[in-house]
Amino acid sequence: MKYHSIFLLCLTMATTFTQAQIYVADKCKISFFSQAKLENIDATNTITKPVFNAANGNFAIKASQTAFNFKSALMQEHYNENYIESEKYPFATFTGKINETVNYSSTTAQNITMTGTLDMHGVNLPRTIEGTLIAKDGKIILESKFDVKLSDYKIKVPSLYIEKIAEVVQVTFYTELVPAKK
């Protein structure tokens, strides 16, 4: 009985220790921008919550395509219906790992690269994304700007389209991560 409790105590401690390495997003903002002839296209998603493991630098995010808010309701409809086909491919995911050794005791911004897979519109592609990491007040802030080429993800822009859409979309990513509770 006594051993049992000690074992349980150890287990609880071990779990606590592991959990402390896991960070979840407190705030997260993913937006993308594309230059177009008539109206620029930009959309923002603020409800997605990524997860980060500080112990080994692994990172995962799963963003619902329908959670992207556009300035124009019609554009949002076109995004979901005609381009990204949200009914068929409802999520964009990225799973990756930080290549560098991160110093979590430093509060200055550190340049990092993350290698992993970006999966959307049914296409899985390996990517290395550059960004910065700031560890401050028990929080980890990750920031990144990267490009997505539409043809890489089999997203077609029809030629008769009046609103000519740029082939490359700029994605901006920002998240504030806090230690996971429990």
């Binding site: 919550k49 990524p50 980060f52 692994n58 990172f59 990756g96 790992k97």
Partner: peptide, 25 residues
Amino acid sequence: MNSQNSDDLLKMVDQKPAKEITTAT
């Protein structure tokens, strides 16, 4: 215990498709 790779993390962020309004009928 710290061996969680990104796929395990992905399971943590996995979500059921939320209730969504049908658009463009």
